[in-house]
Write a protein that binds this DNA or RNA. Sequence first.
DNA 1: ATACATACC
DNA 2: TACTGGTATGTAT
Length: 887
Amino acid sequence: MENEAASTKGEGFLSRMALNDNKAGMEGLNRDKINKIIMETSKGSRFYENELKREQQVNQRIEKMMLQKAQITEQQLKKAQAQVERMATELERSRDLSRVIVHVDMDAFYAAVEMRDCPELKDKPMAVGSMSMLSTSNYHARKYGVRAAMPGFIAKKLCPNLVIVPTNFDKYRAVSDEIREIFADYDPHFQPVSLDEAYLDFTDHLEQRQSWPESSRTHRFRASSTTTGGGQIELQEAEPEVKDLSPVLFEDSPSSSPCLLGSDGVAATAGGGAFEVFGTSVEEAVREMRFRIEQKTMLTASAGIAPNMMLAKVCSDKNKPNGQYRLPPTREAVMDFVQNLPVRKVSGIGKVSEKMLNALGISSCSHLGQQMALLSLLFSDTSLHHFMQVSLGLGSSYIPRHEERKSMSTERTFKELSKVEEQFSLCRDLCEDLAEDMKKEDLKGKTVTLKLKNVNFEVKTRALTLPHAVATVDEIFAVAKDLLKVEIENESPQPLRLRLMGVRISAFVSPDDKKPLQRSIIGFLQPGKTDSSGSVQGMHQKPEKDHHVQTWTLARPPLTQKCQKQEEVSWRSKLRGLEGGQTSEEPQQSFFQRAHAKRLQLQAANAIPQEEGHRENDSVIESIGSHAQNCVESSAKNRKSIDLLENDFVSCEEAQASTSGCGGTVSESLTCPVCFRQVETTDLNVFNGHIDQCLSESSRKPNQSTDPNSELDLDSENDHKECQVAEKWREECEVEEERVKNSEELELKRIDPQNQRSLKNDSHQKVVSINGDDKTVTSQQPQSCNGRGPVLICPVCQLTQDTDDLAIFNHHVDLCLNQEVLHELGGQTSCPINPLSVTNGKAIDRGQLLLRQGSKGKSKRQNSPSSPPSKRAKGIAPHNTIDKFFR
DNA sequence: ATACATACC
DNA sequence: TACTGGTATGTAT
C-alpha cells in the first residue's frame, strides 16, 4: 500500500515509448540512439507525461505481482506444478498437426502500394500517414527506426529525409480485393485479418493439388512484368532456367527454394512468355500464391506455414519481407521452434504482458514452459491457458469463421475543445456518422458508450445500456448527450478540455426486432449463466442481451463448465489460501459505492488528496447511481436461483463428466455433440478445440470423416445422411448457413442437460438436424434408449415429455420455440450470406451465429484500417447552445 | 453492467 | 504544432 511510487520513479527510459524493434525490418539498429531521439522529442509533452503515468501503473502492477510471488511457498508451487503438468498433458492430447495453416501478410502494405504508384519514392525512406501519425513505413525508413504507430514529426527527427505520404484507403482496399481473390483460390473460407493479412487453411487445397495437372500449376509472369516501378528485385534475377514441363524440378521439394529467399526458386523464364511451374508441395503452393499476388499487384507478400494459426502467424514474420517459412508439422519441430521464440513475438502478448513476464525472468517461450507453475499462481486462468498453449506451441488448427461484429464506433481527435456548445455539437456529429454506419449494416444496439480523452491524454468512457435497441441519430445522441452532460457537470465549473471524443454502440440485437428466438433461448439459458471470470452475471430479465455471455453457456455444456470452474477454483483457492471460489462472491456494490471505494483506494495508493472532486462527483454520480443500484439489487436476488439451477446441472451431469476437482474422481471424457465421439479430456478448452474442429470440418466437407487423427471413426453412413440434409441447406444458403445450422442443433443439445445426457447414453445417436425449409426437426435414427428411459424435459416449457424419441422431443421443442422466429428463420435462408464472414472467433462466439441469425446476411466492414467510417469533416456548429442540449 | 487496460493492424 | 481509429477482449469493480 504505502509503497509510494518510490521504486517506480520514472527515471529510466519508458518501455512504453521506446522503440519496438521486435517486429520485422528493424534488426540491428542503433536502438539507443533512436530511443534517445524519441525521448528527447517527446519529453515534457502532455503525451509523454501521460505515458509516464501509465508506465508507473504498470510498474505498480508488477510490484504487486512480485509481492504475491514472494509469498508463494514451496508447497504451493509444488502443488501448482502438479496441476499445470496435468493441464499440459491434457492440452497435449489436443494437439492437432494435421492441418496446414498459412498466414499471409503483405510487406509494408500501404507503403508498398504508394511506392508502386510513385516510383520516385522507391529508393527513399518513406512512410504513409501524417505528421501526427504514421501507418506504415517502407523498409528503407525502418532502418532509421521509423515505424508504424509512430508520429510523423518524431519520425522526421529520426530521419529528416523521410517522405510522408497521406493514406489512400480506397486504393488499399482495391488492392486488398485483388489479393483476396487469390486467397480464395486456395481457401474459399480464408479469414481476413486486415486489408493486407489473412489466415488460410491450405489443407484441402493441397489434397486436391496432388492430382492437378501441371498446367494448373503453371503461372505466367506479368505481361508487362518488371518495370512499372513495382517490379522489385526478384524478377530480374530469374535465370533462364529449364522451365519445360518437368515437374521434377519442383515436385515435392521442400528443399528447393526453401523459403529463405522467397520466390527465388524462379525458373522457367524462357525468353518472352516467361512462366513458372509450381510443384505440389505446401511450400510450392504458397510460393505460387505469393507469386500470383506479386504478378497481379506488383507487391510482395510473406507467408508462414504451420499446423496452427498461432504458429503460422509467427512464421510469416520470420522471413519477411518477401519470404516464407514453413514449420514442419511434427511435435518435435514445433517444440524446438517455440523454445527460442521471444514471448513478444506471439500475437496477444504485447508490451505490458512482455514486461510483466520479463519481471519474472521470462523472455522466451521456453521460460514460459518452465515457469508455468509460478504463472498459474500469478495470472488469471485465461492468461494461464494462453501461456500454456503458447509454451506448447498450440493454437487453433482450424480457422474460425468471422463472427458478427460486436460493436461499432467512431471517434475523432482534434485540437483542444473546451466550449460546451462545441462539444455537444461534435457529439452530435459523431452520432450522425455512427447512425449512418449503423444504417449501412442495418444494426441496432442497446449500449451507447461515450469516450472522452482530455488534453492530458486521460481517457474516460461512460456507457449506458437501454432497455431497447437504438440506431438513429436522435436515439443515439439522446444517450450520448446525457452522458456528456454528466461529465461536463462533473467537471464544472472547469470546462472539459477535450482532445478526442468518440461514440460507440454495442449490445446489438437483430435489426428487425425478432427477439422471440433469442428470448426463448436466452430465457432458458439464464440459469446456467457463468462468465469467464467466474462471477455470475446479474440477471435483469431483459430478454435479449449480451449474447456473448449467454452463448457461452449455450456453446458449452453448462454443467461441465461449472465442474471445471469448481475444479480450478478449488485448487487455486487452496493454494492461495483464499475462500469461497467464484460462485459465492461478495454482494455487489452500487455504482456509487464502487465509485467511492475506488476513489478511496486511489487516494490511498497515490496519497493524493482529492477532497474537492470527491464531493462534487458523488452528488452527480448518485443521481445515476440510484438506477444502477436497483439493477444490482435485483440481480443479487436472482443469483440464488441461478446457483441452484447450476447445481442441478452439475448433479445431472456429474456422472458423465466428472472432473478431478469436481467429483473427486479423476477425469473421464466428454462427448462431442457433433461427432458424438468420446473426447478424452476434462479440459474444456481441449474439448472446445475438438468441437471447433468438428464444426469446422462438418461445414467444410460434411461427407468426410472428421479428425483423421482420431482412433475412433465416424460411421460413414450416418455421415452421409447428415450430408444429405446439409445439401439442402447448402442449396439455399451456402456453406455459411449450414454452419449456423450445425451450431444451432448443437445449441439445442447443449442447452438441455437431459437431452444431453440421453445423447451421451448412446454415442451412436446422430446429429439432430433442423431442416432448413420447414423448421421441423428430424432425427437420423429414432432413439432407442429404451433401457434407460431418460427423462426429456423441454427446455422451453419445462414440461417433461413423455417420449424418449429425440425426433419427437425435438419437434415439441420446436413448437415451443416462438413461431414468429421460426418463420423468420425460414425467410432468413434466402438472404445472401457474406462469404467472408470468417473470423477468429472461438467456439463461444459461434453460438452467437445462432442467436444472431437475423443479421447474418449483412455485409460487414472489415477490421480497420480496412474501412474507416466515412469521416465527414464537419465544422462545429457554433449556434448550438448548451440549453438546447440540456433539455 | 461499467470502466479501464491491453492488444492488434 | 503535432502521439490515430476501429474492434475485440481481458481485468476489476
